[in-house]
Design a protein around this nucleic acid. Structure first.
Lengths: 206, 206
DNA sequence: TAGCTTCAGTGATAAAGTCACATTCAGCGT
DNA sequence: ACGCTGAATGTGACTTTATCACTGAAGCTA
Protein backbone atom coordinates (compact mmCIF):
# COMPACT_ATOMS: atom_id res chain seq x y z
CA UNK A 1 0.00 0.00 0.00
CA UNK A 2 1.19 3.54 -0.66
CA UNK A 3 3.20 4.62 2.32
CA UNK A 4 2.95 7.75 4.39
CA UNK A 5 6.14 8.60 6.21
CA UNK A 6 4.37 9.18 9.50
CA UNK A 7 3.55 5.46 9.59
CA UNK A 8 7.15 4.37 9.09
CA UNK A 9 8.14 4.61 12.70
CA UNK A 10 5.32 2.53 14.14
CA UNK A 11 6.27 -0.65 15.95
CA UNK A 12 4.93 -4.03 14.81
CA UNK A 13 1.84 -4.04 16.98
CA UNK A 14 0.74 -0.58 15.92
CA UNK A 15 1.60 -1.28 12.33
CA UNK A 16 -0.70 -4.31 12.37
CA UNK A 17 -3.39 -2.20 14.01
CA UNK A 18 -2.91 0.41 11.32
CA UNK A 19 -3.00 -2.06 8.44
CA UNK A 20 -6.28 -3.47 9.70
CA UNK A 21 -8.04 -0.19 10.32
CA UNK A 22 -6.77 2.22 7.72
CA UNK A 23 -9.06 2.87 4.80
CA UNK A 24 -7.62 3.61 1.40
CA UNK A 25 -9.18 6.35 -0.69
CA UNK A 26 -8.80 7.17 -4.37
CA UNK A 27 -10.16 10.50 -5.44
CA UNK A 28 -10.29 11.68 -9.04
CA UNK A 29 -9.57 15.28 -9.92
CA UNK A 30 -12.56 17.45 -9.21
CA UNK A 31 -14.00 15.35 -6.40
CA UNK A 32 -14.79 17.02 -3.11
CA UNK A 33 -12.97 15.54 -0.13
CA UNK A 34 -15.10 17.44 2.34
CA UNK A 35 -17.19 20.56 2.27
CA UNK A 36 -18.08 23.26 4.76
CA UNK A 37 -20.29 22.20 7.63
CA UNK A 38 -19.64 18.51 7.07
CA UNK A 39 -18.64 16.22 9.91
CA UNK A 40 -15.20 14.66 9.92
CA UNK A 41 -15.01 10.88 9.75
CA UNK A 42 -11.30 10.34 10.08
CA UNK A 43 -7.88 11.80 9.56
CA UNK A 44 -6.71 11.69 5.93
CA UNK A 45 -3.01 11.08 5.32
CA UNK A 46 -2.40 12.21 1.78
CA UNK A 47 -0.09 9.89 -0.15
CA UNK A 48 -0.29 11.40 -3.60
CA UNK A 49 -1.90 13.94 -5.90
CA UNK A 50 -2.90 17.43 -4.97
CA UNK A 51 -5.80 18.74 -2.92
CA UNK A 52 -6.64 22.40 -2.41
CA UNK A 53 -8.35 23.68 0.70
CA UNK A 54 -10.45 26.79 0.28
CA UNK A 55 -13.06 28.64 2.22
CA UNK A 56 -16.03 30.72 1.18
CA UNK A 57 -16.83 33.82 3.16
CA UNK A 58 -20.21 35.26 4.10
CA UNK A 59 -19.83 37.45 1.05
CA UNK A 60 -19.83 34.37 -1.14
CA UNK A 61 -16.28 34.98 -2.24
CA UNK A 62 -13.71 32.22 -1.90
CA UNK A 63 -9.99 32.01 -1.28
CA UNK A 64 -7.57 29.11 -1.43
CA UNK A 65 -5.95 28.66 1.99
CA UNK A 66 -3.36 26.00 1.21
CA UNK A 67 -2.69 22.78 -0.67
CA UNK A 68 -1.98 19.26 0.44
CA UNK A 69 0.24 16.85 -1.46
CA UNK A 70 2.11 13.60 -0.95
CA UNK A 71 3.06 12.98 2.68
CA UNK A 72 0.87 15.76 4.02
CA UNK A 73 -1.56 15.34 6.86
CA UNK A 74 -4.98 16.96 6.79
CA UNK A 75 -4.43 18.81 10.01
CA UNK A 76 -7.72 20.63 9.61
CA UNK A 77 -9.52 17.33 10.12
CA UNK A 78 -8.03 16.77 13.55
CA UNK A 79 -9.80 19.72 15.10
CA UNK A 80 -13.10 18.59 13.62
CA UNK A 81 -12.42 15.04 14.73
CA UNK A 82 -11.75 16.07 18.30
CA UNK A 83 -14.46 18.67 18.79
CA UNK A 84 -17.14 17.24 16.56
CA UNK A 85 -17.64 20.62 14.92
CA UNK A 86 -18.06 20.68 11.18
CA UNK A 87 -15.42 21.76 8.71
CA UNK A 88 -15.17 25.47 8.09
CA UNK A 89 -13.50 25.03 4.72
CA UNK A 90 -13.82 22.71 1.76
CA UNK A 91 -11.23 20.50 0.06
CA UNK A 92 -11.22 19.79 -3.65
CA UNK A 93 -8.96 17.37 -5.51
CA UNK A 94 -6.88 19.08 -8.19
CA UNK A 95 -4.80 16.15 -9.42
CA UNK A 96 -5.99 12.59 -8.84
CA UNK A 97 -5.24 11.96 -5.18
CA UNK A 98 -4.80 9.05 -2.81
CA UNK A 99 -5.10 9.10 0.93
CA UNK A 100 -5.13 6.76 3.89
CA UNK A 101 -8.05 7.37 6.17
CA UNK A 102 -7.36 6.93 9.87
CA UNK A 103 -10.54 6.45 11.89
CA UNK A 104 -10.95 8.15 15.23
CA UNK A 105 -10.24 5.06 17.32
CA UNK A 106 -7.01 4.25 15.56
CA UNK A 107 -5.96 7.90 15.73
CA UNK A 108 -6.45 7.88 19.48
CA UNK A 109 -4.42 4.69 19.86
CA UNK A 110 -1.58 6.00 17.71
CA UNK A 111 -1.52 9.28 19.62
CA UNK A 112 -1.48 7.30 22.84
CA UNK A 113 1.21 4.84 21.94
CA UNK A 114 3.59 6.39 19.43
CA UNK A 115 5.76 9.32 20.31
CA UNK A 116 6.84 9.70 16.69
CA UNK A 117 3.26 9.79 15.51
CA UNK A 118 2.54 12.56 17.99
CA UNK A 119 5.61 14.41 16.84
CA UNK A 120 4.54 14.15 13.21
CA UNK A 121 1.08 15.47 14.00
CA UNK A 122 2.43 18.39 16.00
CA UNK A 123 4.93 19.30 13.29
CA UNK A 124 2.22 19.22 10.70
CA UNK A 125 0.08 21.50 12.83
CA UNK A 126 2.94 23.91 13.29
CA UNK A 127 3.58 24.13 9.60
CA UNK A 128 -0.07 24.77 8.86
CA UNK A 129 -0.23 27.60 11.40
CA UNK A 130 2.87 29.13 9.84
CA UNK A 131 1.34 28.87 6.38
CA UNK A 132 -1.83 30.59 7.48
CA UNK A 133 0.02 33.36 9.27
CA UNK A 134 2.05 34.03 6.15
CA UNK A 135 -1.13 34.05 4.10
CA UNK A 136 -2.71 36.65 6.38
CA UNK A 137 0.31 38.87 5.94
CA UNK A 138 0.32 38.36 2.19
CA UNK A 139 -3.36 39.15 1.78
CA UNK A 140 -3.18 42.15 4.08
CA UNK A 141 -0.06 43.85 2.76
CA UNK A 142 1.27 42.62 -0.53
CA UNK A 143 0.43 44.03 -3.92
CA UNK A 144 -1.75 41.98 -6.17
CA UNK A 145 0.50 42.23 -9.23
CA UNK A 146 3.45 40.81 -7.27
CA UNK A 147 1.35 38.04 -5.81
CA UNK A 148 0.02 37.13 -9.24
CA UNK A 149 3.51 37.08 -10.74
CA UNK A 150 4.75 34.88 -7.91
CA UNK A 151 1.84 32.51 -8.26
CA UNK A 152 2.61 32.11 -11.93
CA UNK A 153 6.37 31.87 -11.37
CA UNK A 154 5.84 29.08 -8.84
CA UNK A 155 4.20 27.09 -11.62
CA UNK A 156 6.53 27.97 -14.45
CA UNK A 157 7.49 24.30 -14.70
CA UNK A 158 4.39 23.91 -16.84
CA UNK A 159 4.70 25.99 -19.95
CA UNK A 160 0.98 26.47 -20.25
CA UNK A 161 -1.35 26.71 -17.29
CA UNK A 162 -4.95 25.60 -17.77
CA UNK A 163 -6.80 27.93 -15.46
CA UNK A 164 -9.49 30.55 -15.82
CA UNK A 165 -9.23 34.07 -14.49
CA UNK A 166 -12.02 33.29 -12.06
CA UNK A 167 -10.12 30.34 -10.60
CA UNK A 168 -6.99 32.44 -10.37
CA UNK A 169 -8.99 35.10 -8.53
CA UNK A 170 -9.99 32.49 -5.94
CA UNK A 171 -6.35 31.45 -5.59
CA UNK A 172 -5.41 35.01 -4.70
CA UNK A 173 -8.57 36.04 -2.91
CA UNK A 174 -9.47 38.84 -5.26
CA UNK A 175 -11.99 39.63 -7.98
CA UNK A 176 -11.96 38.16 -11.46
CA UNK A 177 -11.79 41.61 -13.08
CA UNK A 178 -8.63 42.42 -11.18
CA UNK A 179 -6.95 39.26 -12.43
CA UNK A 180 -8.12 39.89 -15.98
CA UNK A 181 -6.75 43.41 -16.02
CA UNK A 182 -3.40 42.46 -14.48
CA UNK A 183 -2.98 39.57 -16.91
CA UNK A 184 -3.86 41.81 -19.86
CA UNK A 185 -1.25 44.28 -18.69
CA UNK A 186 1.28 41.45 -18.41
CA UNK A 187 0.41 40.28 -21.89
CA UNK A 188 1.08 43.78 -23.23
CA UNK A 189 4.50 43.54 -21.56
CA UNK A 190 5.13 40.20 -23.20
CA UNK A 191 5.20 38.39 -19.86
CA UNK A 192 2.42 35.97 -20.74
CA UNK A 193 0.27 34.95 -23.65
CA UNK A 194 -3.43 34.59 -22.99
CA UNK A 195 -6.10 32.45 -24.52
CA UNK A 196 -9.42 31.17 -23.30
CA UNK A 197 -8.79 29.13 -20.14
CA UNK A 198 -5.05 29.13 -20.66
CA UNK A 199 -2.02 31.16 -19.70
CA UNK A 200 1.19 30.54 -21.62
CA UNK A 201 4.34 31.39 -19.73
CA UNK A 202 7.64 32.62 -21.18
CA UNK A 203 9.72 29.87 -22.71
CA UNK A 204 6.67 28.40 -24.34
CA UNK A 205 6.41 31.14 -26.93
CA UNK A 206 9.81 32.73 -27.32
CA UNK B 1 -1.24 28.26 42.20
CA UNK B 2 -3.47 29.72 39.51
CA UNK B 3 -5.12 26.84 37.73
CA UNK B 4 -5.38 26.09 34.07
CA UNK B 5 -8.27 23.85 33.19
CA UNK B 6 -6.15 21.57 31.05
CA UNK B 7 -4.32 20.49 34.21
CA UNK B 8 -7.50 19.56 36.06
CA UNK B 9 -7.82 16.11 34.64
CA UNK B 10 -4.30 14.91 35.42
CA UNK B 11 -3.98 11.95 37.76
CA UNK B 12 -2.00 12.23 40.98
CA UNK B 13 1.35 11.15 39.58
CA UNK B 14 1.21 13.56 36.66
CA UNK B 15 -0.09 16.33 38.85
CA UNK B 16 2.94 15.92 41.13
CA UNK B 17 5.20 15.90 38.08
CA UNK B 18 3.50 19.06 36.88
CA UNK B 19 3.74 20.87 40.19
CA UNK B 20 7.45 20.17 40.35
CA UNK B 21 8.30 21.21 36.81
CA UNK B 22 5.95 24.00 35.89
CA UNK B 23 7.37 27.48 36.00
CA UNK B 24 5.16 30.40 36.93
CA UNK B 25 5.45 33.62 34.97
CA UNK B 26 4.18 37.10 35.75
CA UNK B 27 4.33 39.55 32.91
CA UNK B 28 3.43 43.22 33.23
CA UNK B 29 1.57 45.01 30.46
CA UNK B 30 3.90 45.94 27.65
CA UNK B 31 6.37 43.11 28.17
CA UNK B 32 7.27 40.92 25.24
CA UNK B 33 6.55 37.22 25.76
CA UNK B 34 8.49 36.23 22.68
CA UNK B 35 9.57 37.91 19.49
CA UNK B 36 10.12 36.79 15.93
CA UNK B 37 13.04 34.47 15.33
CA UNK B 38 13.37 33.58 19.01
CA UNK B 39 13.59 29.99 20.15
CA UNK B 40 10.82 28.48 22.23
CA UNK B 41 11.65 27.33 25.72
CA UNK B 42 8.37 25.83 26.80
CA UNK B 43 4.65 25.82 26.34
CA UNK B 44 2.89 28.72 28.07
CA UNK B 45 -0.54 28.03 29.56
CA UNK B 46 -2.10 31.44 30.04
CA UNK B 47 -3.99 31.77 33.33
CA UNK B 48 -4.87 35.43 33.28
CA UNK B 49 -4.50 38.79 31.58
CA UNK B 50 -4.37 39.40 27.87
CA UNK B 51 -1.63 38.79 25.33
CA UNK B 52 -1.79 39.79 21.68
CA UNK B 53 0.07 37.88 18.98
CA UNK B 54 1.07 39.87 15.94
CA UNK B 55 3.37 39.46 13.02
CA UNK B 56 5.38 41.91 10.97
CA UNK B 57 5.64 41.36 7.25
CA UNK B 58 8.56 41.92 4.94
CA UNK B 59 7.01 45.29 4.22
CA UNK B 60 7.52 46.26 7.84
CA UNK B 61 3.80 46.46 8.43
CA UNK B 62 2.21 44.53 11.28
CA UNK B 63 -1.11 42.88 11.93
CA UNK B 64 -2.60 41.38 15.06
CA UNK B 65 -3.36 37.70 14.45
CA UNK B 66 -5.19 36.79 17.65
CA UNK B 67 -5.27 37.23 21.41
CA UNK B 68 -4.74 34.86 24.29
CA UNK B 69 -6.48 35.15 27.64
CA UNK B 70 -7.24 33.08 30.72
CA UNK B 71 -7.29 29.35 30.04
CA UNK B 72 -5.74 29.68 26.58
CA UNK B 73 -2.80 27.65 25.41
CA UNK B 74 -0.06 29.22 23.32
CA UNK B 75 -0.48 26.75 20.49
CA UNK B 76 2.01 28.64 18.40
CA UNK B 77 4.75 27.60 20.81
CA UNK B 78 4.16 23.90 20.28
CA UNK B 79 5.29 23.98 16.68
CA UNK B 80 8.42 25.87 17.64
CA UNK B 81 9.00 23.51 20.55
CA UNK B 82 8.77 20.43 18.34
CA UNK B 83 10.68 21.61 15.30
CA UNK B 84 13.18 23.92 16.94
CA UNK B 85 12.38 26.64 14.43
CA UNK B 86 12.04 30.16 15.76
CA UNK B 87 8.78 32.00 16.26
CA UNK B 88 7.39 33.71 13.20
CA UNK B 89 5.30 36.15 15.23
CA UNK B 90 5.69 38.13 18.40
CA UNK B 91 3.55 38.22 21.54
CA UNK B 92 3.05 41.32 23.64
CA UNK B 93 1.24 41.55 26.97
CA UNK B 94 -1.70 43.94 26.88
CA UNK B 95 -3.06 43.49 30.39
CA UNK B 96 -0.83 42.13 33.14
CA UNK B 97 -0.67 38.42 32.45
CA UNK B 98 0.19 35.21 34.19
CA UNK B 99 1.15 31.92 32.66
CA UNK B 100 2.39 28.49 33.61
CA UNK B 101 5.40 27.45 31.60
CA UNK B 102 5.58 23.79 30.70
CA UNK B 103 9.09 22.71 29.74
CA UNK B 104 9.65 20.36 26.82
CA UNK B 105 10.24 17.25 28.94
CA UNK B 106 7.08 17.67 30.97
CA UNK B 107 5.10 18.44 27.82
CA UNK B 108 6.28 15.17 26.28
CA UNK B 109 5.34 13.21 29.40
CA UNK B 110 1.89 14.79 29.58
CA UNK B 111 1.28 14.13 25.89
CA UNK B 112 2.41 10.56 26.43
CA UNK B 113 0.39 9.81 29.51
CA UNK B 114 -2.76 11.91 29.55
CA UNK B 115 -5.45 11.49 26.99
CA UNK B 116 -7.27 14.57 28.27
CA UNK B 117 -4.15 16.68 27.97
CA UNK B 118 -3.77 15.54 24.37
CA UNK B 119 -7.41 16.34 23.72
CA UNK B 120 -7.00 19.82 25.17
CA UNK B 121 -3.97 20.51 23.01
CA UNK B 122 -5.69 19.29 19.85
CA UNK B 123 -8.79 21.35 20.57
CA UNK B 124 -6.71 24.42 21.13
CA UNK B 125 -4.93 23.84 17.84
CA UNK B 126 -8.22 23.41 16.04
CA UNK B 127 -9.59 26.64 17.41
CA UNK B 128 -6.47 28.54 16.42
CA UNK B 129 -6.64 27.22 12.85
CA UNK B 130 -10.28 28.27 12.68
CA UNK B 131 -9.43 31.74 13.96
CA UNK B 132 -6.73 32.21 11.38
CA UNK B 133 -8.91 30.98 8.55
CA UNK B 134 -11.60 33.45 9.54
CA UNK B 135 -9.01 36.20 9.71
CA UNK B 136 -7.83 35.43 6.19
CA UNK B 137 -11.37 35.70 4.93
CA UNK B 138 -11.96 38.92 6.84
CA UNK B 139 -8.80 40.58 5.58
CA UNK B 140 -9.37 39.43 2.03
CA UNK B 141 -13.02 40.29 1.60
CA UNK B 142 -14.57 42.52 4.23
CA UNK B 143 -14.81 46.27 4.12
CA UNK B 144 -12.63 48.26 6.41
CA UNK B 145 -15.38 50.46 7.81
CA UNK B 146 -17.38 47.42 8.90
CA UNK B 147 -14.35 45.78 10.43
CA UNK B 148 -13.49 48.94 12.32
CA UNK B 149 -17.05 49.29 13.62
CA UNK B 150 -17.07 45.67 14.74
CA UNK B 151 -13.72 46.02 16.45
CA UNK B 152 -15.04 48.98 18.40
CA UNK B 153 -18.38 47.34 19.12
CA UNK B 154 -16.63 44.29 20.55
CA UNK B 155 -15.04 46.62 23.10
CA UNK B 156 -18.02 48.80 23.85
CA UNK B 157 -17.93 47.57 27.46
CA UNK B 158 -15.31 50.22 28.03
CA UNK B 159 -16.77 53.63 27.41
CA UNK B 160 -13.47 55.13 26.39
CA UNK B 161 -10.78 53.18 24.56
CA UNK B 162 -7.18 54.25 25.06
CA UNK B 163 -5.67 53.44 21.70
CA UNK B 164 -3.94 55.40 18.96
CA UNK B 165 -4.94 55.29 15.33
CA UNK B 166 -1.63 53.62 14.56
CA UNK B 167 -2.32 50.79 17.01
CA UNK B 168 -5.79 50.39 15.63
CA UNK B 169 -4.33 50.16 12.14
CA UNK B 170 -2.16 47.24 13.29
CA UNK B 171 -5.21 45.56 14.78
CA UNK B 172 -6.93 45.67 11.43
CA UNK B 173 -3.90 45.27 9.20
CA UNK B 174 -4.30 48.58 7.40
CA UNK B 175 -2.67 52.00 7.29
CA UNK B 176 -2.95 54.65 9.96
CA UNK B 177 -4.39 57.20 7.53
CA UNK B 178 -7.23 54.86 6.65
CA UNK B 179 -8.18 54.46 10.29
CA UNK B 180 -7.93 58.22 10.87
CA UNK B 181 -10.23 58.99 7.95
CA UNK B 182 -12.80 56.36 8.87
CA UNK B 183 -12.86 57.49 12.49
CA UNK B 184 -13.23 61.12 11.45
CA UNK B 185 -16.17 60.14 9.28
CA UNK B 186 -17.69 58.25 12.23
CA UNK B 187 -17.19 61.26 14.45
CA UNK B 188 -19.07 63.41 11.93
CA UNK B 189 -21.89 60.87 12.17
CA UNK B 190 -21.84 61.08 15.95
CA UNK B 191 -20.74 57.46 16.29
CA UNK B 192 -17.60 58.24 18.28
CA UNK B 193 -15.86 61.15 19.91
CA UNK B 194 -12.15 61.49 19.26
CA UNK B 195 -9.30 62.92 21.26
CA UNK B 196 -5.57 62.33 21.31
CA UNK B 197 -4.99 58.64 22.05
CA UNK B 198 -8.63 58.05 22.96
CA UNK B 199 -11.86 57.00 21.35
CA UNK B 200 -15.07 57.62 23.28
CA UNK B 201 -17.92 55.29 22.40
CA UNK B 202 -21.65 56.07 22.47
CA UNK B 203 -23.13 55.98 25.95
CA UNK B 204 -20.15 57.84 27.31
CA UNK B 205 -21.20 61.14 25.78
CA UNK B 206 -24.89 61.06 25.10
C1' DT C 1 7.27 78.73 27.84
C1' DA C 2 10.20 76.90 24.13
C1' DG C 3 11.36 72.91 22.02
C1' DC C 4 10.44 67.97 21.02
C1' DT C 5 8.13 64.09 20.06
C1' DT C 6 4.11 61.66 19.14
C1' DC C 7 -0.38 61.71 17.30
C1' DA C 8 -3.76 63.14 14.08
C1' DG C 9 -5.62 65.47 9.74
C1' DT C 10 -5.56 65.96 4.84
C1' DG C 11 -4.72 66.51 -0.31
C1' DA C 12 -3.07 64.07 -4.28
C1' DT C 13 -2.46 59.98 -6.55
C1' DA C 14 -2.23 54.93 -7.36
C1' DA C 15 -3.98 50.35 -6.63
C1' DA C 16 -7.73 47.34 -5.90
C1' DG C 17 -12.61 46.20 -5.57
C1' DT C 18 -17.40 46.60 -7.41
C1' DC C 19 -21.01 46.96 -10.77
C1' DA C 20 -22.85 46.66 -15.16
C1' DC C 21 -22.56 45.27 -19.46
C1' DA C 22 -20.29 44.05 -24.06
C1' DT C 23 -17.72 40.76 -26.51
C1' DT C 24 -15.60 36.44 -27.75
C1' DC C 25 -14.95 31.70 -27.80
C1' DA C 26 -15.73 26.52 -27.72
C1' DG C 27 -18.69 22.97 -27.89
C1' DC C 28 -22.95 21.04 -29.37
C1' DG C 29 -26.90 19.82 -31.95
C1' DT C 30 -28.98 19.96 -36.37
C1' DA D 1 -21.12 24.10 -41.96
C1' DC D 2 -24.19 26.99 -39.09
C1' DG D 3 -26.10 28.99 -35.49
C1' DC D 4 -27.11 28.70 -30.39
C1' DT D 5 -25.72 28.77 -25.87
C1' DG D 6 -23.17 29.23 -21.77
C1' DA D 7 -18.81 30.20 -20.01
C1' DA D 8 -14.93 33.16 -20.20
C1' DT D 9 -12.97 37.45 -20.92
C1' DG D 10 -12.73 42.66 -21.79
C1' DT D 11 -13.75 47.20 -20.25
C1' DG D 12 -15.72 51.69 -18.60
C1' DA D 13 -17.23 54.10 -14.57
C1' DC D 14 -17.04 54.59 -9.96
C1' DT D 15 -15.94 53.53 -4.95
C1' DT D 16 -12.86 52.07 -1.49
C1' DT D 17 -8.39 51.40 0.21
C1' DA D 18 -3.38 52.24 0.15
C1' DT D 19 0.51 55.24 -0.24
C1' DC D 20 3.15 59.47 -0.06
C1' DA D 21 4.11 63.79 1.55
C1' DC D 22 3.14 66.95 4.19
C1' DT D 23 0.83 70.16 8.01
C1' DG D 24 -0.96 70.99 12.34
C1' DA D 25 -2.02 69.98 17.23
C1' DA D 26 -1.33 68.00 21.89
C1' DG D 27 1.26 66.90 25.67
C1' DC D 28 5.75 66.51 27.96
C1' DT D 29 9.98 68.20 29.66
C1' DA D 30 13.84 71.09 30.48
Amino acid sequence: MPAHSILNTLNDALRRDALENIGKMHMPAGSVVFSAGEQCRGLPLVTGGSIKVQMTGLSGQSIVLYRMGADDICTLSIGCLMTGRGYRAEAVVEEDAEALMIPRGLFDRLMDQSEDFRLGIMESYGRRLDDLMLLVEEVAFRRMDERLREWLAARSGKRVLAITHQELAVELGTAREVVSRLLKEMERNGEVLLSRGKIALPGSFE
